[in-house]
Design a protein around this nucleic acid. Structure first.
Lengths: 122, 122
DNA sequence: AAAATAATAAACCAGATGGTTGATAATGGG
DNA sequence: CCCATTATCAACCATCTGGTTTATTATTTT
């Protein structure tokens, strides 16, 4: 099986794929906020914003605690760090390999150049 | 407006949110591959795999060139690096702020402990 | 010329996503 | 006690997603 089983990563990337949810995360970076505060700047209904928060929760990116009638949300670091590591790993991997490929191509071009100048053919 | 307009980021994260597409990216890290090679290890029909490649292309994560009847795909670094940077920035931001919050909480707890041992109350 | 290979296109489908409205429940402040 | 605030739930809707199957096109291979 080549598919990785981590539904966690699925949910994290899916959660990050919507601008409203990224906006929420961004505004959770500096402090905790309740749902109203998170929903206010978004031009959508409150229930819609509430659903977005649920998506962030299911991804583990946000934790909520209920204080009286307010639901206070806090950003959760671990999954974001995991996604970050995944990206980092693949970026490094691909960079390393394609740098090697580029070096190989340069080498091949140089060889062909040499070969042509030695005995040119149609 | 709090929403960021970058549909690019939307598409990148959405592309990363499916295990089949991540598997494809992973196998593109070491070398270019044509669609058949990409589709082979996935337990789905060829057209389905082809659609996944299109999603990766629309996100700019993969570039394709046609050679004869083969469509050869190559991983594209820039968008992956952009997504990486986005994550990095927010991770650092939130870490910085919540480290400060934790320090504040420790301070508050210490203060309360001192206050209680000074004059305990019900 | 015929057959096999690599890929797209089109039609279709079930289920998820992203949004709305309207009703309901719990809490806090006068 | 009343009322505004905070939030959920349920129903509904349009569109997107992820998959299928069948048919078609273009290129190699034999």
């Amino acid at each position: 099986m080549v598919l990785d089983r981590s539904g966690r990563l699925d949910r994290v990337f899916h959660a990050l794929a919507h601008p409203a949810r990224r906006a929420m995360l961004r505004r959770l970076c500096d402090r905790e906020r309740n749902l109203s505060a998170l929903a206010a700047p978004l031009k959508m209904s409150f229930p819609a914003a509430s659903k977005h928060v649920k998506v962030l929760e299911r991804a583990g990116l946000v934790r909520r605690r209920v204080v009286g009638r307010e639901h206070i949300c806090r950003i959760e670091g671990r999954p974001l760090a995991e996604a970050n590591q995944w990206l980092e790993a693949y970026r490094r991997n691909w960079e390393r390999n394609f740098l090697r490929l580029d070096a190989l191509l340069d080498q091949m071009k140089a060889e062909e150049r040499d070969r042509r100048s030695g005995q040119p053919k149609p």
